Amino acid sequence: MARLAFLGLGVMGAPMAGHLKAAGHDVTVFNRTRAKAEDWAARHDGAWAGTPREAVADADFVMTCVGNDDDLRQICLGADGAFAGMKPGAVFVDHTTVSAAVTRELAQAAQAARLGYVDAPVSGGQAGAENGQLSVMCGGDQGDFDRAAPVIGAYAKICRRMGDVGAGQITKMCNQIAIAGLVQALSESLAFAKKSGLEVEKVVEVISQGAAGSWQMVNRHKTMDQGQFEHGFAVDWMRKDLGICLAAADEVGASLPVTALVDQFYKDVQQMGGGRWDTSSLIARLA
């Protein structure tokens, strides 16, 4: 068992840290809203710290799951940042979905401080985090990954190294690109069925058994039909991710026409007041 720190206790980070504690690791947590850290420590018989630097003291591994590029820089750098407090040889594992550019920037800073760095964004949503069934896509040195993978296994159903630093983030972009187009197509399919006078449940029962079937169809069609969009990953965060995808596509000369279009559809949802709705709310535009 290892000595760990977990930085960031949102809807994903809090249960992930809980799985690490349940696996027998010694876990200290940090969250910018101190009350969340205190509550987590009380519920899991763990420890909390007031700064990232304090949380990571003597940790073998430091996991983080925060909001965006700026949040990650803030938690890593500076006098009270994680890198200032980590011992040489410790491994930093970032589960945040951020740009490959900031990942490479921070990996260089970690290397200068003699730290390992693994970018390890996740897919599976809040339910995946709570059930310990996340898909974890990693980039980094093979040795750092080999050390971190058994620890990540506390909340992962699959954990794979995709290449060097940044490869995990690029893989997560592939994931978000695929989801965006799929949810839009599902939204159009369900809206078309309703306006044609068909029962959505019957339609899905049939088409989900064929080539059109998907996790989103099976798990979200009922709530999409009912206009219920309270299932975790928010539109605001999806637009952040799609912005990362589109910027990275420009860098490598890739064309993402459907992704760009769906990003604008999510902007419409935001303007409808749905920034905190989950990503299946694309169907609300078609009502």
Rank of each mutant, 00 (worst) to 15 (best):
R220D: 08
L282A: 12
K87R: 15
K172T: 00
I244E: 01
M217P: 11
P150H: 09
R32L: 07
E54I: 11
V151P: 03
L198C: 06
V203F: 11
V98E: 04
W215R: 10
Q142W: 01
D71P: 00
V93M: 05
N175C: 02
A79M: 02
A167C: 08
G24Q: 06
Y117F: 14
A254N: 06
K222T: 15
A17I: 08
A59F: 13
D164R: 08
Q216H: 08
R114E: 12
A47F: 06
L182V: 07
G128E: 01
D250S: 13
E105A: 10
G274Q: 08
R285H: 01
A41F: 07
K222P: 00
G78Y: 01
F145N: 05
L4A: 04
M224L: 09
Q264V: 00
I177Q: 03
N131K: 10
Q74R: 12
E38N: 09
V11L: 12
S255A: 14
V56G: 06
H19N: 07
K267C: 02
T33M: 08
T103V: 15
T64L: 14
K202A: 13
I244Y: 13
G18Q: 02
V66K: 04
T259R: 07
R34Q: 12
V136A: 06
K172V: 00
A22W: 02
G13Q: 05
L4Y: 05
G116W: 09
F30T: 10
Q108C: 11
A107G: 15
M162Y: 03
M224H: 00
T171H: 00
V235M: 10
W237K: 10
G163L: 12
A167L: 03
G163K: 06
Q126P: 03
M1S: 14
G143Y: 01
G181Q: 07
G50I: 01
A79P: 10
D119H: 07
A191W: 11
R160Q: 10
R276Q: 14
L9G: 07
V122I: 13
K267N: 02
Q169N: 15
F30H: 12
D144V: 03
S187K: 11
A23Y: 08
A129Y: 00
R3H: 10
M224E: 04
K222A: 14
L286Y: 11
A2M: 14
M12D: 01
D45C: 12
L246C: 00
I207M: 11
R285Q: 04
A247D: 15
A59I: 15
Q270E: 09
A191K: 05
G227V: 05
V200P: 08
V183Q: 09
G46P: 02
M217C: 09
G116Y: 08
L261V: 01
D45W: 02
T223A: 11
G125A: 04
L282S: 06
Q142K: 14
A90V: 09
V252K: 00
A247F: 02
T103F: 11
N219M: 09
V203P: 09
S280R: 08
S214T: 07
G275T: 06
G227D: 07
M137R: 00
E54W: 03
G181H: 07
A193D: 03
L182F: 11
Q176F: 05
A47R: 15
P150Q: 11
Q142L: 13
G143N: 13
Q228R: 11
V252Y: 04
R32M: 09
Q209K: 15
A55N: 14
R220Y: 13
K87N: 10
M137W: 00
A127G: 02
Q126H: 12
Y155D: 02
T96F: 03
V218N: 08
I244T: 03
